[in-house]
C-alpha cells in the first residue's frame, strides 16, 4: 500500500510539471497584455512590459517562473497590484472549500440515501420523487435554483440571509443547496441504477439463499458494491464544486476561487491563471488519489489490482 501511494505521488509530480509547462506555454499565445489600456502611451506600455519582463524570450520567462516555484513563489498579480498570487488564492480558498464541501457532503449523502430507497422500493412514491429530483437537478442550472431561493427565502419570506456572510453559518445554506442539487441528482441516479442491477444479480440471490436477512444483504453486499461508481464520480465532482461554482459564487457573493479565475483570464493576469491552474490540478490529483485509495477500502479486489501483494 505504501509503495503504491509513493508511486502515485511520483506520477503526481510528473503530471504537475507537465500541467504547469503546458499552461505556461499556452498562455504565451494568449492575445492581449495585462497592460492593454488605450490610456497608456506606447512608450509607457513598452516600459511596463519591460518592468514586468513580459518582453523576455519564452525560455527565460519559463526558467524564471519555475525557479520562483521552487522557492515557493507563485508570482504577483498585475491586476491586484503586486499582491502575491499565493495570498490571493489562499484568501479565496476557505469560502470556496467550505461551500463546496458542504454541498458535496449534503448532496452525496442525500443522493445515496434517495438512490437506495428508490432502488429498494421501485415504482413507489420515493422512486418517482428521486426521478423527479434527478431530472430537475440535472436540467435546471444552479443559478436558476439559486436565484429563486434567494428571492423567496431571502427577500419574500426573509428567513435566510440574502448573501454569504463569513461569520454566519446560516448564510451558507442557500449556496450549499444550490450547488448540492446537481450532486443529489447525479449520485441518486447512479446509486439507484447500480443498486437495481446488483439486487437482480446472482450473488445477491446466493446471499439470500444462504439465509442472510434482507437488510444484511442490502447493506453488506449490495450497497457496498453499488457505491463504487458513485465514489468514482465524487472525485471530479468535488473539484468542480470547489473550483467551478462561479455562477453560484456570483449570486450569493461568495468570495471564491471561481470568480478569480474568470477575472484573471479576462485581464491576462498570467501568474494568477498559472497559480490557479497549479492549485486546481494539485487538488484534482489529490482527490483522484484519495478516491483510488477509497476504492480499496470499499472493494478489496481493487486493492490487489493496485499491485500490492502484501495484504
Amino acid at each position: 500500500m505504501k509503495k503504491y501511494i509513493l508511486v502515485r505521488l511520483l506520477y503526481m509530480v510528473i503530471a504537475i510539471a507537465l500541467i504547469v509547462s503546458i499552461t505556461f506555454l499556452l498562455l504565451q499565445f494568449m492575445p492581449g497584455s495585462p497592460f492593454n489600456d488605450l490610456q497608456l502611451t506606447p512608450e509607457q506600455r513598452v516600459l511596463l512590459d519591460e518592468k514586468y519582463g513580459l518582453n523576455d524570450p519564452i525560455p527565460v520567462k519559463y526558467a524564471r517562473y519555475v525557479s520562483n516555484l521552487f522557492h515557493g513563489e507563485l508570482g504577483t498579480s498585475f491586476i491586484f497590484n503586486n499582491q502575491d498570487v499565493s495570498d490571493m488564492i489562499a484568501a479565496r480558498m476557505s469560502s470556496s472549500v467550505r461551500v463546496g464541501l458542504q454541498a458535496l457532503v449534503c448532496g452525496s449523502v442525500i443522493g445515496v440515501l434517495l438512490g437506495i430507497v428508490a432502488a429498494l422500493k421501485r415504482n413507489s412514491f420515493w422512486d418517482h420523487l428521486t426521478t423527479i429530483i434527478a431530472v430537475i437537478g440535472v436540467s435546471i442550472p444552479a443559478f436558476v435554483i439559486g436565484s429563486l431561493m434567494q428571492y423567496y427565502f431571502g427577500v419574500k419570506m426573509a428567513i435566510l440571509p440574502v448573501i454569504y456572510d463569513k461569520g454566519n453559518a446560516v448564510s451558507t445554506i442557500m449556496p450549499t443547496i444550490a450547488l448540492a442539487f446537481s450532486v443529489i441528482a447525479t449520485t441518486a441516479k447512479y446509486m439507484r441504477n447500480e443498486l437495481v442491477d446488483i439486487i437482480n444479480s446472482d450473488y445477491i440471490l446466493f446471499a439470500r439463499s444462504k439465509g442472510l436477512t434482507g437488510s444484511e444483504v442490502i447493506i453488506k453486499h449490495a450497497v457496498r458494491n453499488a457505491l463504487i461508481p458513485v465514489v468514482t464520480i465524487l472525485g471530479p465532482m468535488t473539484i468542480s464544486l470547489i473550483t467551478g461554482s462561479t455562477v453560484v459564487e456570483r449570486i450569493f457573493s461568495v468570495p471564491g476561487l471561481g470568480n478569480l479565475l474568470v477575472t484573471s483570464i479576462q485581464n491576462n493576469d498570467y501568474f494568477v491563471i498559472l497559480g490557479e491552474g497549479l492549485v486546481f490540478s494539485l487538488m484534482f490529483l489529490s482527490v483522484v488519489l484519495v478516491v483510488d485509495i477509497l476504492y480499496g477500502l470499499i472493494d478489496p479486489r481493487i486493492r490487489l489490482a493496485g499491485g500490492n501483494h502484501n495484504e
Binding site: S147, Y151, V155, V162, I163, S253, P255
Partner: peptide
C-alpha cells in the same frame, strides 16, 4: 462596502434593507 457582482443580488439586498 460589500463586493456584490450580481445586479439581481444587489437589488435583493437593497429590498431587504441590507
Amino acid at each position: 462596502i460589500k463586493i456584490v457582482k450580481d445586479a439581481n443580488t444587489a437589488v435583493n439586498l437593497f429590498e431587504t434593507g441590507e
